[in-house]
């Protein structure tokens, strides 16, 4: 039976593909992945930041 290693820590990031906060948070996530590697998981929750600009 295959063994699956679950990450010890999970970072949940609330994102919109056109929201600039994502650029900064992703930079931090990259650095965290460098430090913790497979011990850190990242999950994305997708949320609409911009709606109905006139």
């Amino acid at each position: 039976m295959a063994r699956v290693s679950l990450p010890s820590v999970v970072v949940v990031h609330y994102v919109d593909p056109v929201c600039p906060w994502g650029l900064g948070v992703e930079r931090v996530v990259d650095e965290l992945k460098g430090i913790y590697r497979d011990r850190l998981g990242v999950e994305y929750r997708v949320c609409v930041a911009v709606d109905d600009i006139d």
Partner: peptide, 12 residues
Amino acid sequence: GASFQDIVISTA
């Protein structure tokens, strides 16, 4: 009450 500049860190 999260915003787009937030992250939530959770442990196993």
